[in-house]
């Protein structure tokens, strides 16, 4: 595998990860917290309406998890392609 080829493949895999993680990012904040807030509010988590909870709590927890998932995926990817020096 030539260096250029390797770099291309690494970049493509990176973009796939980005696409998936940003889709989740959009889902928990914009979809759950804003667009679908009314229907989700008919469900409850503890004493809070679910849509409201996503807008003020849930989305933030998911954001934190997303960054750490990204860090671990990228660390593995760096190792796979030998970019981890």
């Amino acid at each position: 595998m030539s260096n250029d080829n390797k770099a291309q493949k690494y970049w493509k895999e990176n973009l796939v990860y980005l696409g998936i993680l940003l889709a989740v990012w959009f889902l928990v904040s914009y979809v759950f917290g804003i667009f679908l807030v009314e229907p989700l509010n008919t469900v409850k988590i503890g004493g809070a309406k679910l849509g409201f909870w996503f807008a003020q709590q849930g989305s933030i927890y998911v954001f934190v998890i997303l960054i750490f998932v990204y860090v671990s995926l990228m660390n593995k990817l760096d190792k796979k392609y030998g970019y981890d020096n």
Binding site: L18, L21, I67
Partner: peptide
Amino acid sequence: FLMGWTGGYVLLALT
């Protein structure tokens, strides 16, 4: 504010 000022860090970290 809550989503806006935290969700930006996901963009920052990933992109």
